[in-house]
Design a protein around this nucleic acid. Structure first.
Lengths: 339, 339
DNA sequence: AGTTCTTTCGAAATCGTTTTCGATCCCATC
DNA sequence: GATGGGATCGAAAACGATTTCGAAAGAACT
């Protein structure tokens, strides 16, 4: 019932708490016999150190915080998987919070994590995040911060991401190489860098291949919890631009919404309209027709971001100044039936 | 840079730490003027209490631990969503660990959480969990434990689940009512209660409707990370039992594997073979043909389990003995094209 | 003037661990 | 016999907040 402490062991052996502590940590100034006796009693009483006390004393919690828009998302759940895996390997625990794409929640959660005295923070910013005092607060407290996926360039910290512009450029170039000319883009929210980058990639690819960019072919999708946006925009697209021959979608989710609309209305994919997604969600391989998309290394992103964070935490402990890294992970096109 | 402590405020005002602490907590034995001055300085210095110290003193961490098989799973990610939401509402943080369906990891993680002195633990057991000393250890430490989804009846703690047997019974009965007679079952791992319950529901439904149970129509799927099992078992099924007219699958994932095989081999769904899934994953609505399945209230399960846990934690604090609940959440059939 | 009560504050213990800095003792050395 | 040095241990401070209990001072009452 009662949890055993150092004092219990000390009392049992008639020695001091200090010696018990040192014995358990294998200090050189403790007699071998004493060490063994301590170890024996510790095992007998099932001792395990009270982390709260350890944390208070060492000013470390061996815990990192993660703030993401949502966990219910194939991409993020794979990132989390990578984060937890890597953190646990190095003896760290992970606290996860969701901003639900709301700035005020994101700010609140940063404070929660700072109060909790986490050793470091991993963040993928919400789509609405357009000010960064909360991030600067983290840095001013000298707590390592690593941004991934949805990053903010102006913040001086390590970042892990993909080259969204390049990936989009490659995707659209592929469409062009296959003879598609009237290419629509279902773009994401106007605020986050990743959706702007993908949009830029789309536009540049068009222009580099002699296709003039037509803003009327760009549709906005700012709901990223379901495929409704893709569905309704597909409907609008066909009505407004019947001569369109392909779509480059910001996300598989959006692409699948479009596919759903096309399937229901007897519009043939890819013959009438080709569809290109982004992220390679699990479902993109099971949807019909299977979705051509861009593979994003989600799990790896979690692992790498955590590696960097834990490394900065270690350097921090030794008061070594650390140079922030910006890692760009490779993407690749996954060619399936929809193009 | 430096984080302010009670002592800093006390020094600034030339009063004692004790008074500052009491002023901030609005104790009645502090002068109004002093309270205001303290509050003012606290705001000025941006004071927020060091949770580590608070935790050590109060023996509470305001943190709960969650152990699940994996986060990369639509069902579990929705459960997590519910857990985090409910926990945050009540001021608790959530540490998530993954057992990856391994018993030894599950045990290890229980210890991690106990060492971390979490206030309570939520668990969905791994498929391999066939001994329960680690759960009993949690209970013997008097730390509230709530099991959800994959539960163990013999452990005396609160539980939140669905009635798997009933849901399966309803699903299979529906198939029978639609005229299907040769119904195969792609069952789950032999160990977990949920897969046995679903199997029992399948068998009982058959027998209650005058169809004799045929073990050769039951196929084992023990890999739950991809749809490979569904795919290969579908192939085997058609070879071994060509006259089969429908499948009741333990999971949407398995069902989708089967659908994939049938689609690739020009076997018509539902005309040649109908497919019934379980869980109502997001993708089951986008796959083609759309999958008929059982809706499982994942988010609600997370919320309810957390509510119960936090309630037990509160009761625990007041040393009130608590009666363990077993909540069974309702499921419903989602009828789509695959049947 | 003596007693009681109220108001306001702070000293000190406590949570459990870590770590520094002596203290003590014993043995070897000159 | 004095000195130095290693081996072994423990007292005590520290981490930062909470809370009990008593002190002090003044007000209010007999």
């Amino acid at each position: 019932m009662k949890v055993t402490t150092l004092k219990d062991i000390a009392n049992e052996l008639g020695i001091s708490v200090a010696t018990v502590s040192k014995a358990l940590k294998d200090y050189p100034d403790v007699n071998k016999d004493t060490k063994e006796k301590v170890l024996q009693i510790a095992r007998k009483l099932n001792y395990s150190p009270n982390q709260l006390a350890v944390n208070l004393r060492t000013k470390q919690t061996k815990t990192i915080g993660v703030i993401i828009p949502t966990t219910v998302h194939h991409f993020f759940s794979k990132v989390i998987d990578g984060i937890i895996e890597e953190a646990e390997k190095k003896g760290y625990l992970v606290i996860i919070l969701q901003s639900s794409e709301k700035l005020f929640l994101e700010k609140l959660q940063v404070n929660l994590l700072l109060d909790k005295r986490v050793d470091g923070i991993l963040m993928s910013l919400s789509n609405k995040t357009n000010e960064f005092v909360h991030l600067k607060k983290v840095l001013s407290r000298n707590i390592p911060l690593v941004l991934f996926d949805k990053i903010e360039p102006s913040i001086s910290c390590s970042k892990v991401r993909i080259d969204d512009k390049k990936a989009a450029y490659e995707a659209v170039s592929y469409l062009i190489s296959k003879g598609y000319k009237k290419i629509s883009h279902f773009r994401g929210d106007l605020n986050p860098k990743i959706s702007n980058d993908r949009f830029e990639g789309y536009r540049e690819a068009l222009e580099d291949h002699g296709i003039t960019y037509d803003p009327s072919l760009v549709y906005l999708c700012n709901n990223n919890t379901d495929f409704e946006d893709g569905y309704t925009n597909a409907k609008k697209l066909i009505r407004e631009n019947p001569e369109v021959d392909s779509i480059f979608a910001i996300t598989d989710l959006v692409a699948i919404g479009a596919i759903k609309y096309f399937n229901e209305n007897n519009i043939k994919i890819p013959d009438d309209v080709a569809v290109f997604g982004f992220s390679n969600w699990f479902m993109s391989s099971v949807v019909s027709p299977a979705l051509t998309t861009v593979h994003q290394p989600a799990h790896q992103m979690g692992v790498v971001a955590t590696e960097i964070l834990l490394n900065e935490i270690e350097l921090n402990k030794e008061n070594t100044p650390c140079i922030h890294k910006e890692v760009i992970l490779p993407t690749k096109l996954i060619l399936r039936e929809s193009c």
